[in-house]
């Protein structure tokens, strides 16, 4: 349920409580009423049906990514590839 995508705040219109946000290079309007006072230009928000539902915690995002990287380093997947599912793209 509930498709929501990370988008970066490009500018804020305080009068109407809206922002222009950038989703992977596509810019669009998003309503900020549910995250007001909490966000500024350059922040990331999660946008659901045109409305920002939360601010993305950049520190947490980076921290989790680091944990994932660590997991990668700690595993030797080359030899232990389950079911031989490692790809060899035929490109």
């Amino acid at each position: 349920m509930c498709l929501a995508v990370p988008s970066k705040i490009v500018s804020i219109d305080h009068e109407f409580c809206t922002a222009t946000v950038d989703t992977m290079g596509v810019s669009r309007e998003a309503n900020l009423a549910l995250v007001e006072n909490n966000v500024e230009v350059g922040d990331w928000v999660l946008v659901h049906i045109g409305i920002a539902m939360s601010k993305i915690d950049a520190e947490e995002a980076l921290r989790t990514l680091e944990l994932h990287e660590e997991l990668l380093l700690s595993s030797d997947i080359q030899e232990n590839d389950p079911d031989g599912k490692s790809t060899s793209d035929d490109g």
Binding site: V5, S7, T23, M24, G25, V26, V47
Partner: peptide
Amino acid sequence: ISTPVSGFCEM
């Protein structure tokens, strides 16, 4: 697929 099109489709 260009980045804006990916973004649009994700959105």
